[in-house]
């Protein structure tokens, strides 16, 4: 069936040894959308993103990105195709400088020096603290600054689709709000985003559409506003 979705996932399953972590996941992200995937700890959110980036192998199913099947494509080629992934826990290159982390973010774009220089400037404008600390080892930054660095690093890969894993993890509420404001802003500037979050309220608050993931299964999918108003969702994830 032809579809103009940027990302289309059907029947995706994944395992850790004998344990099945993802059950027949189906989801779609359309160009320009901000889609949130919410769910409790251990629901399989991170596994889902890892499987999309193919740093975790899918057992079966299909991932189609931009018209191309990428289910078994090597991770570095998936980045080249335009999926940039901001992993859970930031995963910055701790001993390397902030500047070098950004440089490595542009690894797939390294031939395009002019664009990289421009984009790096844009990221320093978006996150001035990164410019201030650009010569420091990334491992010495605070959690929030590392999140900004991880986002900047991914943006330098020139994403058509940004996979964002749990950006609020371990951050103070004020910082969470700041990070989500930036995510919203990036989306308004045209970056398509799949955001995976435990903080359902904040995530659905900025998203267009949402999916609810429970023990490796998509159990609900609707507009973000509908999900926010849904009683079951409120009970399970919003603490009402």
């Amino acid at each position: 069936m032809p579809s103009n979705a940027l990302l289309q996932v059907t029947g995706l399953t994944a395992h850790y040894g004998p344990i099945q972590a993802l059950h027949e996941i189906a989801l779609e992200v359309n160009p320009g959308e901000l889609v949130a995937m919410v769910g409790a700890n251990g629901a399989g959110k991170t596994t889902l993103l890892h499987t999309l980036s193919n740093v975790h192998k899918a057992t079966s199913g299909q991932v189609i990105f931009d018209g191309q099947e990428i289910t078994r494509t090597a991770p570095h080629k998936i980045v080249q195709a335009g999926i940039c992934h901001i992993p859970e826990g930031r995963q910055v290159f701790a001993p390397l400088s902030v500047e070098d982390n950004l440089l490595l973010g542009s690894f797939t774009q390294r031939k395009n020096k002019a664009w990289v220089a421009e984009e790096t400037d844009r990221i320093y404008t978006l996150f001035p603290i990164l410019k201030e600390k650009r010569r420091q080892a990334a491992g010495t930054l605070s959690g929030g600054q590392q999140q900004m660095l991880a986002m900047g690093r991914a943006l330098l890969g020139r994403p058509k689709l940004l996979l964002l894993d749990e950006p609020s993890m371990g951050l103070a509420p004020l910082l969470v709000a700041e990070i989500f404001r930036v995510v919203r802003e990036l989306n308004e500037k045209g970056v398509t985003i799949l955001l995976v979050e435990q903080n359902a309220k904040a995530a659905l608050g900025i998203a267009d559409r949402g999916y609810v993931l429970e023990t490796g299964r998509v159990v609900l999918s609707a507009d973000a506003d509908t999900l926010l108003a849904d009683e079951a969702v409120q009970k399970a994830y919003l603490g009402h």
Partner: peptide
């Protein structure tokens, strides 16, 4: 993992 995710082979 992060090296994979920035597109390093």
């Amino acid at each position: 993992t992060a090296a994979h995710l920035v597109g390093i082979n």
